[in-house]
């Protein structure tokens, strides 16, 4: 009995610590969404929802509480309509969707095929490539920023989507992950059996290997999608014309021009954050498993 009571007490203590921290984590999100729906005056005069200045009294049975009245009718979608109809943020949204999904798809396909080939196929150059991939894991991307810019300039790929997508579709990290995944979950015997049955090597990859490493396919695609969506430096360096900007660059430019227009900036942030957040909520399990796979299984 005594044991049980202390454990209930410590459970209460744990929640007493966790609930305020959870609220602290969520408050900026709530503030962001409400701020995006306010006009400039209300932005300055109210912390969260705009108030009428009147008090309303709620009576629940004997209990009555006085609360400041919320001016719901002052909340407005004006910031959003300005973003889409005057500032053309829809274009940036489409650019982000296109860049992120294309990069995610191609990078996953390239990495899965490369990782499988390095793990299970024999060919000349395999050892060299494997070593190069492992070595490339420690290269900090900023080191390649200047030479890649120069290379894209020479190839005539500056200010093109190709120049942004192409360097991102062969990530050493992805090949490394898929090589590990293949070693862990694609039995050699199965591949041998398929070969004896007359299945082509490409057929084996698509119909046997890909389904077996499916958890990694899902996780890596999602990780790449989010990373591309949130990427700022590369599009900032590679792209020049504003009709090509993804949301990351477009919003940071808005911030430069409309510095004091807080509601507008918050609306731009909401538009930028909502699509990947929804995608994540849908595919949450795959993401967490992919995130921790490398760390826990080693």
């Amino acid at each position: 009995m005594g044991q049980k009571r202390t454990s209930t007490l410590t459970a209460v203590a744990a929640h007493a610590a966790l609930i305020p921290l959870a609220l602290l984590t969520l408050v900026p999100f709530v503030w962001l969404v409400i701020a995006s729906l306010k006009n400039t005056d209300d932005f300055f005069s109210s912390m969260f929802l705009p108030l009428t200045g009147e008090m309303i009294t709620l009576s629940i049975g004997q209990l009555s509480i006085s609360l400041p009245e919320v001016a719901w009718d002052r909340l407005t979608l004006a910031n959003y309509s300005r973003l889409f109809f005057e500032l053309g943020i829809g274009r940036a949204l489409l650019n982000s969707i296109f860049l992120s999904s294309t990069t995610a798809l191609l990078a996953t396909l390239c990495s899965a095929a490369g990782g499988y080939a390095l793990a299970r196929l024999r060919f000349t150059g395999r050892k060299v490539i494997t070593t190069a991939v492992l070595a490339a894991l420690i290269i900090p991307p900023p080191l390649l920023l200047a030479p890649t810019y120069q290379l894209l300039y020479e190839l005539g790929l500056l200010n093109t989507f190709t120049g942004l997508i192409l360097p991102a579709i062969a990530p050493a990290f992805g090949v490394f992950l898929f090589r590990q995944a293949t070693i862990q979950s694609v039995p050699k015997d199965l591949i041998e059996a398929a070969r004896i049955d007359g299945c082509s090597e490409i057929g084996i990859f698509f119909s046997i290997v890909l389904p077996l490493v499916r958890p990694m396919v899902g996780a890596f695609m999602l990780i790449t999608f989010l990373a591309t969506w949130n990427n700022f430096v590369w599009p900032q360096v590679v792209l020049q014309s504003s009709d090509k900007f993804p949301l990351s660059v477009a919003v940071s430019q808005l911030k430069g021009v409309y510095r004091q227009d807080y509601g507008l900036l918050m609306a731009g942030t909401v538009v930028s954050v909502l699509p990947p957040a929804m995608l994540f909520m849908l595919l949450q399990k795959e993401f967490i498993s992919g995130l921790t796979a490398g760390a826990v299984k080693g």
Binding site: L109, C110, S111, A113, G114, Y116, A117, L118, L121, R122, F123, G125, R126, I129, A132, V133, A136, I139, L144, P147, T148, L151, L166, P167, I169, A170, A172, V175, S200, E201, I202, F205
Partner: peptide, 20 residues
Amino acid sequence: APYALAGPFVIVFIIFVVVP
């Protein structure tokens, strides 16, 4: 077949990692 599978990765890796 191994070259067809590893090829896209290897080519892009050489052009956009090794060369830079």
